[in-house]
Design a protein around this nucleic acid. Structure first.
Length: 566
RNA sequence: CGGGGUGUAGCGCAGUUGGUUAGCGCGCGUGGUUUGGGACCACGAGGCCGGCAGUUCGAGUCUGCCCACCCCGACCA
C-alpha cells in the first residue's frame, strides 16, 4: 500500500456533494479529469473488474457471447436508422481526414445490427445474444453526481436476436432474471419498474432502479401490490367527476382577471376538478391543446408518446396570439386550427368550467362531445404522491432513484431499418426480432456506495470489494513485526485471498481510518501486542467489535468471517 | 441552453476602503521524539491569486469579456 497509486483524502474536494462522489474520491478509487469524465485508479478499477466478471458470468449463463465493438462509427450506419438526424448534440460527431462523418459510439444498436445482417442468413442461426462491456460516449447536457451521470461511461450492453416475437418474449424473462442476479450479486438492492423506452424505441421496457434520495428520476411505487413505474409513464386512477352533467347550454360568465385555476376555484367556489385546464404546446408550426382536469397536471413524457415526437414546447404568448388564442382563457370550445388532445380524465358524463377563448370570460356547463370534440384522447396526466394505484387502488408513493439498468424489447426497429433479415423455414425473408439490455457499470458502483456506507467510509459488499482483506500492520519499523505481518500477508495470499497490505509507516489512527474509508470487508491488525500473543486481530467492516484469533487458525477464521460478511 | 454558485499551494479555506515580500489548517520533504483510532517539535519545499483586456502611481482586491467546475431546471440510455 505504500506504493499504491492514489492516496486517500482527509477532505473531499468541494465539488463533490453526494456520499458516493465524496467517498469514491476520498478513498482513492477515481479522479476527475473533466466534467463527467473520470479515471479509475487501481482500487477503483479492481471494483470495475469484479463487476465485469459478475456480468460475464450471468450473461454467459444465459447463452451470451461477449464481443468487442468499435468506438468510432461511420455516420452512414446511423443515417440508416435515422438516429443521425433524431439524436441531438448528445451524440459526439467528428470527421476523419477525408472529411467523412463519424460518431463516437453512444450505444451500439447500429453496429451490432450491422454485424447481425452480415452474419445471419438463416433461422437456424437464431436465436443468439451478444454482449459487450465497453466505454460509451455521450455529450450529456449536464453530468452530475460523480459517477451517476457521465459523459464517458462504462456500459454492459447485450443484444438478443430472435426469429419471432414469441422467442423474444420467451428469452426476455431470462435476461430479466439475469439482471436481478447481477444486481443482487453486486450487493445492490434494486426495484424493477415499468419504464419509458425513450430514444431506444421498441415495445416494452423495464428499468432497474436503486432507490435513493440522490437519484435523478422519480418513480411511483405502490406498497399494496408492488406496482412500480417511472413517473414518465406511471398510471393512476383518475378522479371521479365533480359536477353532475347538466342539460344547460354552455353559458358565458364574465371572469375579469381570472387567469389561473386557483382564480376560478375562488371565483366559482368549486374544486379544481370541475375546471378544464387547457395547456397549449407548439409542435413545429402547429399548436396542440392538451386538455386536462384542472386538478391534474400534464406529463410531458406521456404527451411526447401521444404525439409521437419529443420536439415540442410550451407555446409562448406570441405563438398563442399568432393563432388567436388568449393566454389564461384558452378553451377547447370553438378552438379553430389547433389539434385538441384530451386527457382521459375528461369525461362526457359531467360538465366543466372552461375558458371562453376571449379575454376575461369563461364558459360553464361545458361538456365533452357536445360543446367540444377531442381530436385524440390519451393518458397525458402526471401521477402524484397519494394518487390511487392503477392495479389495486392502493396509494402510490413517489420515490427518487438511480436508473442502474434498463431492458428493452426492440422488435424490428433496427433490423427493419437496416435490412437485418433471415430466411425462415418457409423460405420467407423476415426482419430479425431484437432485444437490448444495458447496465451502467460506473453508475452501479456509485449506487452501491450510495447504499453501503457509513460516516467513516465505504462498506463494500465482498463480491465487488477491491480487496477482501486489509492487513493493518502497526509498528512496521520493527523488523520482527514487519516479518510477522509479511508472513500473514503471504499465507493469506497463498490461500487465494486478495489482501491490501498497509505497510505504511503511519500512526494507528491513520491506518484504521483509511481502512474504514476504503471499506474492505475484513480488517486484520497485527501489532506488538498481537504478535507476542501469537494472534491476529480480525474485524469485519460492518462489525463494531474485533476478535482475536490464534495465528494458526487465521486462514480458517478469515474464511468464516468472509462467508459471514455481506 | 436558462437560473444560481465557486475559482487563491496537492486538498479545505482566509485575505480589510486597492497599498510592502499573499496567509492559515491538513498533506508533502528533512531531522528528532512518538506508535492501538487521523501524534508532537524544529526546519523546509511548494503560488501565472482560472485566463485575457482595461482602470490606476499601484490590482488577489475595481470593470468588461472569456474559460472551467458545481447545483437547480430543460434534456437524457
Amino acid at each position: 500500500m505504500s506504493h499504491l497509486l492514489g492516496r486517500t483524502l482527509r477532505q473531499a474536494p468541494a465539488e463533490a456533494e453526494t456520499a458516493s462522489h465524496k467517498l469514491l474520491l476520498r478513498a482513492g478509487l477515481v479522479r476527475q479529469l473533466a466534467a463527467g469524465i473520470y479515471s479509475y485508479l487501481p482500487l477503483g478499477y479492481r471494483v470495475v473488474r469484479k463487476i465485469e466478471r459478475i456480468m460475464q458470468e450471468e450473461m454467459d449463463a444465459i447463452g451470451g457471447q461477449q464481443v468487442e465493438l468499435p468506438v468510432l462509427h461511420p455516420a452512414e450506419l446511423w443515417k440508416e436508422t435515422g438516429r443521425w438526424f433524431d439524436v441531438g448534440q448528445e451524440m459526439v460527431r467528428l470527421k476523419d481526414r477525408a472529411d467523412r462523418d463519424f460518431v463516437l459510439g453512444m450505444t451500439h444498436e447500429e453496429v451490432i445490427t450491422d454485424l447481425a445482417r452480415r452474419e445471419v442468413r438463416s433461422y437456424r442461426q437464431l436465436p443468439f445474444m451478444a454482449y459487450q462491456i465497453q466505454t460509451k460516449v455521450r455529450d450529456e447536457p449536464r453530468p452530475r453526481g460523480g459517477l451517476v451521470r457521465l459523459r464517458e461511461f462504462l456500459m454492459k450492453d447485450g443484444y438478443s436476436f430472435h426469429a419471432d416475437p414469441q422467442d423474444l418474449d420467451a428469452y426476455y424473462p431470462l435476461m430479466y432474471q439475469a439482471y436481478l442476479n447481477i444486481f443482487s450479486r453486486s450487493g445492490l438492492k434494486v426495484v424493477p419498474v415499468e419504464a419509458d423506452p425513450g430514444m431506444m424505441g421498441g415495445t416494452g421496457s423495464h428499468e432497474f432502479v436503486m432507490l435513493s434520495p440522490t437519484g435523478e428520476d422519480t418513480f411511483m411505487l405502490c406498497q399494496g401490490c408492488g406496482y412500480a413505474a417511472n413517473l414518465e409513464r406511471a398510471e393512476f386512477v383518475k378522479p371521479a367527476p365533480v359536477l353532475p352533467p347538466s342539460d344547460e347550454p354552455a353559458e358565458l360568465v364574465a371572469t375579469p382577471g381570472a387567469k389561473t385555476i386557483d382564480d376560478l376555484v375562488n371565483l366559482f367556489g368549486l374544486p379544481a376538478g370541475a375546471m378544464l385546464k387547457t395547456v397549449v404546446y407548439a409542435e413545429g408550426e402547429r399548436l396542440v391543446a392538451a386538455v386536462i382536469r384542472g386538478d391534474l397536471a400534464v406529463n410531458e413524457a406521456k404527451l411526447a408518446r401521444a404525439l409521437h415526437t419529443a420536439h415540442f414546447h410550451l407555446a409562448t404568448d406570441e405563438e398563442l396570439r399568432a393563432h388567436g388564442v388568449y393566454p389564461g382563457y384558452v378553451s377547447p370550445v370553438g378552438l379553430e386550427g389547433v389539434h385538441i388532445l384530451v386527457d382521459d380524465s375528461i369525461r362526457e358524463d359531467t360538465e366543466y368550467i372552461a375558458g371562453a377563448n376571449r379575454p376575461d370570460a369563461h364558459l360553464r356547463h361545458t361538456r365533452l362531445g357536445r360543446d367540444f370534440q377531442a381530436d385524440e384522447v390519451a393518458d397525458i396526466a402526471a401521477a402524484r404522491e397519494g394518487d390511487p394505484c392503477p392495479r389495486c387502488g392502493g396509494t402510490l408513493h413517489a420515490e427518487r432513484g438511480i436508473e442502474a439498468g434498463h431492458t428493452f424489447k426492440l422488435g424490428t426497429k433496427y433490423s427493419a431499418a437496416m435490412g437485418a433479415t433471415y430466411l425462415g423455414a418457409d423460405g420467407q425473408e423476415r426482419p430479425i426480432i431484437m432485444g437490448c439490455y444495458g447496465i451502467g457499470v460506473d453508475r452501479l458502483i456509485a449506487s452501491v456506495v450510495e447504499q453501503s456506507h457509513d460516516e467513516r467510509g465505504i462498506m463494500w459488499p465482498k463480491s465487488i470489494a477491491p480487496f477482501q482483506v486489509q492487513l493493518v500492520a502497526l509498528g512496521m519499523d520493527d523488523a520482527a513485526l514487519a516479518a510477522y505481518a509479511e508472513n500473514v500477508y503471504q499465507e493469506l495470499s497463498a490461500a487465494g485471498y486478495e489482501v491490501l497490505f498497509d505497510d505504511r509507516d503511519d500512526t494507528p489512527g491513520v491506518k484504521f481510518n483509511d481502512a474504514d474509508l476504503i471499506g474492505t470487508p475484513l480488517r486484520l491488525t497485527v501489532s506488538q501486542r498481537t504478535m507476542s500473543a501469537a494472534q491476529v486481530e480480525l474485524k469485519p467492516r460492518t462489525a463494531k467489535q474485533f476478535s482475536l484469533v490464534p495465528r494458526g487458525e487465521l486462514v480458517q477464521r478469515v474464511a468464516e468471517a468472509l462467508a459471514a460478511a455481506p
